[in-house]
Design a protein around this nucleic acid. Structure first.
Lengths: 241, 241
DNA sequence: CAGTGGTCTAGACCACTGC
DNA sequence: CAGTGGTCTAGACCACTGA
């Protein structure tokens, strides 16, 4: 462990923090195997049970997966389906066509106040802005504005436009930025002229507004996204304990 | 354990299932202490570590709480604040007045199809219906319809109307039904005449529709509730891992 | 087959709670 | 102070994976 001085925290806790930190710093990358229990036990001179407790804790935090007989692996969060969680589709049951994305514009601008605030940047920092329209069964479903710090994501401006664009893998391969989790805030608005044009809605009808802040393993903001969709398409289910 | 025959499941798993079942059958009631680790270890002739693993699992499921030096206790879920999770308030920051509830009507009727479906009852079963209006700072915020199986909840019809009515404690004391968890589905609608009257809204403006199914520890449906509120008051935050 | 994680045991010591 | 849960150890055996 990096700091053997702070003896007040339990060993299993220090070990899991150490590993979480390695993951945050991309020393251990998604999909990679982490050292085996025996290896960690020997390296840090702690009992196997203590190692197991640390790893179990990381499983609980969603950072790793354990596969018996194979090893323990850094988990790659799957946000591809998050879109689907919120929006209900009307297409026939057998229809499994992927939603399609079309990028409407890509540019770099001085960040509006709310964007720099959301991304924890200095006011006036330049940011990349993407506008994107997501469709299902040929019908527009979500219009998105996506904001990124320009200094880290300039490559996004010049990348060729591929078709089934999932952005997070692109951030990873092009910019070395790995999205670990996201915070979404859902509110309700009414359709304006832009929604009427992009989503084919009637002005004044309910719109669902989804604001998402994507964060790295180290909790640094990576991307801020604001999506608008027809309220009638929205459905969300929560479990309360 | 009740069935020592099924040896294929791990001991810690059988033990936690046994305890979960005791909780489901109200043999162990919310707030009560469960047997100590040592007690369970002796009674079931298993090692302490195995007992601990079983109890840790129950903590993860949200069924118990453990308090060092004191004991392990059946958890009482707190839904009183769920209302607050969805609705943002505008009152001054220092204002901590509790939201108020007023019951508009109480009666028993043949359950509408969607109600009996939600409660997993035979079509045509009689149900209790409550209408309730929840206000904050004197302004109506949520209008609710609450549905209960009449045969189990007839007492709700005749109870005196107390003021700070939290229903779930009433279900427990009057009917012996304990709510363990709930499933909520959020959709968006537009205001109708009823919303205009009860919530002071303009017809056609966005409404948030929250449907909640409350369940016991044994996953049997207890109550189905449908709440409507002004869309402009709605805000919900989710964390995605 | 060797190597991995999963289960289970037995026991020592610590930290906290409540009387 | 006695009793509780929390930490940690050391070691045995099992179940599964993949070459």
């Amino acid at each position: 462990m990096s700091d053997d001085l702070d003896d007040r925290r339990p060993i299993h806790r220090r070990l899991s923090d150490q590993l979480a930190s390695d993951i945050a710093q991309n020393k251990l990358r998604p999909g990679e195997a982490i050292p085996t229990e025996a290896e960690l036990s020997a390296r840090y001179k702690v009992a196997l049970g203590t190692v197991r407790k640390a790893l179990d804790h990381l499983v609980g935090k969603g950072l790793i997966e354990r596969i018996q007989g194979s090893g323990s692996f850094v988990r790659r969060p799957d946000f591809g389906t998050a879109f689907v969680r919120f929006i209900r589709y009307f297409g026939s049951a057998g229809d499994r066509r992927m939603p399609k994305s079309r990028i409407l514009s890509r540019d770099a601008v001085v960040g509006p106040r709310e964007v720099t605030d959301a991304l924890h940047l200095e006011g006036g920092t330049r940011v990349v802005r993407l506008r994107r329209l997501r469709s299902h069964d040929g019908l527009p479903v979500l219009s998105e504005e996506i904001w990124l710090e320009e200094s880290r994501f300039a490559a996004v401006l010049t990348m060729p436009e591929m078709e089934p664009q999932l952005l997070y893998p692109i951030y990873e391969s092009l910019c070395g930025e790995i999205v670990a989790r996201a915070e979404e805030t859902i509110t309700i608005d009414v359709a304006d002229e832009g929604d009427a044009e992009l989503l084919g809605m009637v002005v004044g009808r309910p719109v669902v507004l989804i604001e998402r802040l994507a964060l790295g393993y180290d909790d640094r903001p990576i991307e801020w996204r604001r999506s608008r969709g027809a309220g009638s398409d929205f459905r969300y289910k929560v479990d309360i304990r």
